[in-house]
């Protein structure tokens, strides 16, 4: 793998389904260009895309910060959304508050947060109802032993 530390931020606009996934797509390319193994890139990209879609579906806006070092990629997605009243309930597979038009797009089936957790090494969610949600996750960039 090549490349030193790299960090940046993507701004996400709520309900902007035209560009939904653009940030995760760019991050995927960044990791590929650094020579990160394909299976790790895929795990990361899926987690980032699920997180990005959540912000687009539920929030007015969000900031997706990333930092990539030789050993780890970390993402912090802070959104201005409704907040999650019960995080353990939101982590339950199949639990969703998404409206029908989101489901018609193929999302909002209540698999997003559990799928992020499945793909990353560490994940934390903090949320304040009426203010927003902050999701952080990281993945080691070297193959697991």
């Amino acid at each position: 793998m090549t490349g030193g530390a790299d960090e940046g931020v993507y701004f996400i606009t709520g309900k902007d389904f035209t560009n939904a996934g653009a940030a995760s797509s760019s991050l995927k390319k960044l990791l590929e260009d650094r020579g990160v193994p394909a299976d790790i890139v895929r795990r990361f990209s899926i987690a980032a895309f699920e997180a990005e879609m959540n912000a687009i579906i539920y929030a007015v806006a969000g900031m997706m910060r990333y930092s990539i070092t030789r050993d780890m990629v970390k993402v912090t997605l802070q959104d201005m959304g409704p907040g999650i009243p019960d995080i353990s309930l939101a982590m339950t597979e199949g639990y969703s508050t998404a409206p029908d038009y989101i489901r018609e797009m193929g999302f909002g089936s209540g698999m997003g947060l559990p799928n992020i957790k499945k793909n990353v090494d560490h994940m934390t969610i903090t949320s304040v109802v009426g203010e927003g949600t902050t999701l952080e996750f990281d993945i080691a960039l070297s193959p697991s032993p």
């Binding site: 895929r42 797009m105 999302f107 698999m111």
Partner: peptide, 25 residues
């Protein structure tokens, strides 16, 4: 699948996706 959430959760790499959904997502 028509559920993209399922594609993200259960599909395997380098496969063919068969779907009835046609949007950009």
């Amino acid at each position: 699948a028509d559920l993209m959430s399922d594609v993200l959760a259960f599909s395997v790499t380098n496969s063919l996706l068969i779907t009835g959904l046609t949007n950009a997502q």
